[in-house]
């Protein structure tokens, strides 16, 4: 009962602040400067050695994008959902939708390229400007403990392994 109430209040709060931050970027930046994220000194780095027209590119988003025939992300748990959805290369944009209550995705639903530029990337591949496209992946942003550990230890390394298996050279990541 108390947990239910707490979860509902948290989700309402996230939904409300997400909508406000979507409208007023200056407020979002203020929140961002107070936000305590995981802190790192070192940076992993893999130089890209092939020209773009020989590169295999994949997209990864945390905007809650998924195919309509895939289960939506879990918006019931206020700590988020650390799972991911595979988006095959030739997925038409009309088959994609967004489940993510914590930001305003009205514009992204009107033109998904502003969040998940699959169609733009497909056209650049057709014109020979990018070598090829691999399977893309979508997560939902806003993941808190204990799901953060699942993301870091299980689901994100799994996606990295799949990308490696598909011989991906470069990944573009886009947020909510």
């Amino acid at each position: 009962m108390t947990d239910d109430w707490r979860n509902r209040s948290l989700k309402d709060l996230y939904r409300l602040t997400g909508q406000i931050f979507s409208q007023i970027p200056a407020l979002a930046r203020l929140w961002g400067s107070a936000y305590r994220a995981l802190n790192f000194d070192s940076v992993p780095f893999t130089p890209l050695r092939k020209p773009l027209n020989e590169c295999r590119l994949a997209l990864v988003t945390t905007g809650g994008v998924h195919r309509r025939d895939q289960p939506p992300f879990d918006m019931v748990d206020p700590r988020g959902d650390p799972t991911y959805r595979r988006i095959p290369v030739d997925t038409p944009l009309a088959e994609l939708t967004i489940t993510h209550d914590y930001y305003d995705h009205t514009d992204a639903e009107a033109d998904l390229n502003i969040l998940f530029p699959l169609e733009l990337a497909q056209s650049l591949v057709r014109r020979g400007l990018i070598g090829s496209l691999a399977t893309s992946y979508s997560f939902m942003g806003h993941i808190e403990p204990p799901h953060l550990e699942t993301l870091l230890r299980q689901t994100a390394p799994e996606v990295a392994m799949f990308l490696k298996q598909e011989q991906v050279d470069a990944v573009l990541l886009t947020p909510a």
């Binding site: 992993p44 993301l151 994100a156 490696k164 990944v171 990541l173």
Partner: peptide
Amino acid sequence: LIARIIESAGIST
């Protein structure tokens, strides 16, 4: 965080 994990696997992000 996801970018760091992918980059650590040897892919540029």
